[in-house]
């Protein structure tokens, strides 16, 4: 079977809805399946569970929290990554805090799905953010799948999880297709995946950048043996797997579509420097500090991590 990334998300939602009557989906234009992941769900599961919402992100996010506190397992689809800024209060200050503040009386089994996060080519400043580091920093379980099968498996686990989980599906990963010959299955949160083994340098690549890292690793194979490490979940991060990889390679490059300061790349470097084996100073490739992606395609691309930067960083850590 050829599986597209969006179809994988659609399959994950369909299977979760079919398996558990508590699962329901809220979002804008989801009945029509406009973004893809919710295609055909309304026909199959009805308006009681597939809820097209008015443009009231703050209210429907908190409403989903209220539903999660009372026995439902809601998924919210956000139409634009930057809408997350509107609901930071609801997600971070309410959903994330309920378990601790209530002394464990409740969990909040809420899943937020952001199909098309990061730059979408030509959507400019207010539609091109990639704020996964912000949520990892706040402590919300944060997932950025790179491949269709990971998207399926991680979304299934996110929905089954008793805590709020946010799933970023990078726009640049949506065109990825995979030939799948096995049964799709949930993939546990918090487990990294090594896409390619290597002995010289570990490249930690987030989301769609995994594919760039793999391409560069292949290209530089005669010169450098690169291990491509996909954390898949940014919080909780699979630190033991990273430590094991660095035991093998001792060198680290991170490629991360976050803004530079306080991005997950910074955290990976800091943790590696404090706790893991490094034989050379590590490097990271990120968006610049405080990035606003400009409209013109050349400018939009100029501020995102790219393969040239990765090649240079790999050669630098090998010096």
């Amino acid at each position: 079977m050829r599986l597209s990334y969006t179809k994988a998300l659609n399959r994950a939602l369909t299977d979760a809805l079919a398996e558990d009557p508590a699962v329901c989906v809220f979002g804008e234009d989801i009945g029509a399946g406009m973004a893809g992941p919710t295609l055909n769900l309304l026909d199959r599961f009805g308006p009681g569970r597939i809820v097209d919402t008015p443009l009231s992100e703050q209210a429907f996010t908190s409403m989903a929290i209220g539903a999660a506190l009372t026995g439902r397992r809601p998924v919210i689809e956000f139409q634009i990554p930057s809408l997350l800024f509107l609901v930071f209060e609801q997600l971070v200050n309410q959903a994330h805090k309920f378990s601790l503040m209530t002394g464990g009386q409740t969990g909040v089994p809420l899943t937020c799905l952001v199909p098309g996060s990061g730059s979408r080519d030509g959507w400019a400043g207010q539609h091109s953010d990639h704020p996964y580091s912000l949520f990892a920093h706040a402590g919300m379980k944060t997932v950025v799948p790179a491949t269709p099968t990971d998207a399926y498996g991680l979304l299934r686990s996110a929905i089954a999880d008793p805590d709020p989980v946010i799933v970023f599906a990078p726009a640049a990963a949506l065109p990825v297709r995979e030939t799948v010959t096995w049964e799709l299955a949930p993939i546990p949160l918090g487990c990294a995946r090594i896409h390619r083994e290597g002995t010289d340098v570990t490249v930690v690549a987030v989301g769609h950048l995994v594919h760039d890292a793999l391409a560069v690793a292949e290209e530089l194979a005669p010169e450098i043996s690169v291990e491509v490490f996909d954390p898949r979940t940014l919080h909780p991060f699979d630190w033991p797997a990273l430590a094991a990889s660095l035991e093998r390679t001792g060198r680290l490059v991170v490629i991360d579509d976050s803004n530079r300061s306080c991005g997950i790349g910074a955290e990976v470097l800091a943790t590696a420097a404090e706790e893991m084996r490094l034989v050379a100073p590590p490097r990271r490739i990120t968006r610049p500090d405080g990035t606003v992606l400009p409209f013109a395609p050349q400018l939009d691309r100029a501020l995102q991590p790219h393969r040239d930067q990765l090649r240079r960083a790999l050669r630098a850590v090998m010096k």
């Binding site: 329901c24 999660a68 506190l69 439902r72 209060e89 209530t102």
Partner: peptide, 30 residues
């Protein structure tokens, strides 16, 4: 809060309980 009594919590953010109650009402109907 006391979830065993349907008390979904006092809340430190003004207005925040409104939509949560709406969600609880939606749940009950579902």
């Amino acid at each position: 809060a006391d979830f065993s009594l349907g008390i979904l919590g006092a809340n430190g953010i003004v207005g925040a309980g409104g939509p949560i109650a709406v969600g609880a009402a939606w749940s009950a109907r579902q």
